[in-house]
Design a protein around this nucleic acid. Structure first.
Lengths: 131, 131
DNA sequence: GTAAGTACGTACAAAAAGGTAAGTACCCAT
DNA sequence: ATGGGTACTTACCTTTTTGTACGTACTTAC
């Protein structure tokens, strides 16, 4: 007879807690925002402090206004970024990381740093593969 | 007069070394492979040891064969993954991490772990925003 | 013999991401 | 008064990504 293992939590609970390997887990969405090209770079830049919209745009090479705005909104929705709009004209908006945002951003920066530091080794792998 | 700062390396050198904020830097491509949805999850699973293709497919919820193959090939090209094909029929292929791959995978898993562990806090942010 | 599994490649279609250009409403410098 | 900057939004179009379904060549299980 099969030993009956008591189920400590429902599947829904598991998903709420975080189950990246399951398709339907909301963590997949968060992952998408955090690892999106412009999202990642925004988080990294914001670790250096508060920035205005246009400052971010200039620091992040190749980003369009549309995509930057979109990425920032997704991260704001996840509670990673704080948006402070000063009621002046011309517009003045300041973006900064929330405490939660600092935590992810640190993880993201570590990954980004590793890639920057080890790029030459990866490029090595490419040339050896080509040979 | 402006003090002339001697340039220690060319722009090309900087890009080769890794300059994530610059559009044309090859590190952007590596980043893309590593942070791609299926790439990330593959790396994380492979940290647990060697897997066959179909084992990976079953562990990674929602991945199609096509995308899995594609992601694995990209990571293989970057020197992160080793592919060993046994000359038998039916086919038997084993995937594992290279030493370089283990290093990135550790970074990736840390980010993944953070998200899984803190998902509830992010979900909190969403409901508060909705209110 | 019939179905399922193995590790893909390929063709086609759908979906998502991204780029471009324009508009807004007002300020400042030339 | 003309041009540029600010922080976006919207519409439209292109590119990229992803999914679906099928084919392969052969084995094992039923």
């Amino acid at each position: 007879m099969k030993p009956k293992i008591p189920v400590p939590e429902t599947l829904t609970d598991q998903l709420r807690r975080g189950a990246l390997m399951a398709t339907e887990c909301p963590s997949r969405d968060v992952l998408k925002h955090v690892t999106s090209r412009w999202g990642m770079l925004s988080l990294i830049v914001l670790l250096d402090g508060t920035h205005r919209f246009s400052e971010l745009r200039r620091k992040i090479g190749g980003v369009s206004e549309k995509m930057l705005a979109q990425s920032l909104q997704a991260l704001e929705g996840d509670g990673f970024i704080l948006r402070k709009s000063l009621p002046v004209v011309p517009p003045h908006v300041e973006y900064s990381l929330t405490p939660l945002g600092v935590e992810v951003a640190v993880q993201v920066r570590q990954l980004g740093d590793w890639i920057e530091l080890n790029l030459s080794r990866v490029l090595q792998a490419h040339v050896q593969r080509a040979a």
